[in-house]
């Protein structure tokens, strides 16, 4: 089927309510095919036929009739995704801060606070998203120009992009961020294993790491597929954590008292224990380097596969 016809049908159907889209597209396709019939498929002919049907916006308007709405049908899908996205971001932020607040305030205040901020926050999210989309809808009137060209038709979306599971991403963000924050607060509050003189200056980089992790998650939620922006932020995040792990693991971040404590309670000498721990650090570093490299390569392979198909 002709690319221009598909683009025309897409231009019409994306301005229709979701419930009508499939059937209208199917019918419109059949009708256009009938109109093309046995004529040779020159671009001018296609253009003539599509112009007989009128501007896609005009046709979409006729299909829709004169319904009144707060959210314009062509924005409805985006509106719902935006609502979900903002809602999810909000819940993630609320949930990930629980461990921290519990640590500071105790359980009862937390439950009360959480309920209050969740209900208020979700209501605010809903209100402002709706108002925002209402404004967008009333600004962008459904213009149907008298003259238009085939090239004005919107491009078809690529079908093969591999999806990123939303649930998995949400889990990753919640788990990653809350684990990161708990870990940081442990270190800060003098967890005895760490040498604070060394770890102290690293703390800011731990925070950056958590923030990057959060950003990557949000970008994944927004795009939902392994597209270029997602690959770029993920690569930056992975390279950052690689460099960071290298410097952190190579530093003398452990409290030396640990060696003595372990030596006192076992038959090994301090020297052996120190060597063993150093070796574990090296192995851990290698595992991280290999793991990160593999995950970057897998990501690039996924993107390559999609673009080859398209």
């Amino acid at each position: 089927m002709n690319q221009w016809v598909e683009r025309y049908i897409y231009a019409v159907s994306k301005k229709l309510p979701v419930s009508m889209r499939e059937d209208v597209s199917k019918e419109l396709r059949a009708n256009i095919q009938d109109m093309i019939a046995d004529e040779p498929l020159k671009e001018e002919d296609i253009s003539d036929i599509l112009h007989k049907l009128g501007h896609p916006n005009q046709l979409a308007n006729s299909y829709r009739g004169k319904e009144r709405y707060v959210i314009a049908p062509e924005h409805y899908d985006n509106y719902i995704s935006a609502l979900k996205l903002f809602g999810v971001i909000f819940v993630i932020v609320a949930v990930t801060t629980i461990p921290l607040t519990v640590y500071v305030d105790g359980w009862r205040t937390v439950a009360k606070e959480l309920f209050r901020s969740l209900s208020e926050g979700l209501l605010n999210t809903f209100t402002w998203t709706t108002i925002g989309f209402w404004i967008i809808g009333s600004l962008g009137k459904n213009e149907a120009k008298e003259t238009w060209k085939l090239n004005d038709l919107p491009e078809l979306p690529k079908p093969n992009q591999s999806k990123i599971s939303r649930g998995e991403t949400i889990f990753e963000i919640i788990f990653g961020v809350s684990f990161g924050l708990i870990f940081i607060s442990w270190m800060q509050n003098g967890f005895p294993f760490f040498n604070m003189d060394i770890v102290g200056p690293f703390l800011i980089f731990f925070y950056i790491s958590v923030l990057l992790d959060f950003c990557v998650g949000i970008v994944k939620l927004i795009y939902g597929t392994w597209c270029i922006p997602v690959v770029i932020v993920s690569t930056i995040e992975k390279i950052y954590s690689l460099i960071f792990s290298y410097f952190f693991l190579r530093s003398d971040f452990l409290n030396h008292e640990i060696y003595t404590t372990i030596a006192d309670n076992s038959e090994y000498s301090i020297e052996t224990i120190k060597n063993t721990i150093d070796l574990s650090k090296e192995i851990l570093l290698i595992v991280i380097v290999v793991g990160t490299t593999v995950s970057i390569l897998t990501m690039f392979y996924k993107v390559y596969k999609v673009n080859r198909k398209a």
């Binding site: 209208v24 419109l28 007989k52 049907l53 009128g54 046709l59 299909y63």
Partner: peptide, 12 residues
């Protein structure tokens, strides 16, 4: 009658 008028009219 235009094609762009007839097809939506049928649905309506």
């Amino acid at each position: 009658i235009e094609a762009g008028t007839l097809y939506p009219l049928l649905r309506r």
